[in-house]
């Protein structure tokens, strides 16, 4: 059975034990959007130290793509979505 995460609503398959960054890397998705300070979000250190690879997960908020394991149906977005007042959600 194929398991998928969803990156900006696109289905991305993953294998057991893979992190979000692993699954996205297979499709050459390496640019995860921009931080509030304007920095490119991408995998840099790969072990949770630099916080450059944060992605937006619908229930938890910002999470590290390099550490967080994939779960079937995980909904991820490349930048924090706007809240109801039309402001960027707080990091």
């Amino acid at each position: 059975m194929t398991q998928n995460i969803y990156w900006n609503n696109q289905a991305v398959k993953f294998l057991d034990g893979e992190t979000i960054a692993n699954a996205l890397s297979r499709l050459n998705i390496t640019h995860f959007g921009y931080s509030l300070s304007g920095q490119t979000r991408t995998v840099f250190c790969g072990i949770g130290q630099c916080q450059n690879c944060l992605v937006w997960e619908e229930t938890t908020g910002l999470i590290e793509a390099c550490l967080t394991p994939c779960k079937d149906g995980l909904n991820l977005h490349s930048s924090p979505p706007l809240d109801q007042k039309g402001e960027k959600s707080h990091e």
Partner: peptide, 15 residues
């Protein structure tokens, strides 16, 4: 050095 796909070598090895 902040561009996408510029990484620490360790992160490539980890992957």
């Amino acid at each position: 050095w902040t561009l996408a796909n510029v990484r620490t070598l360790g992160s490539i090895q980890t992957e």
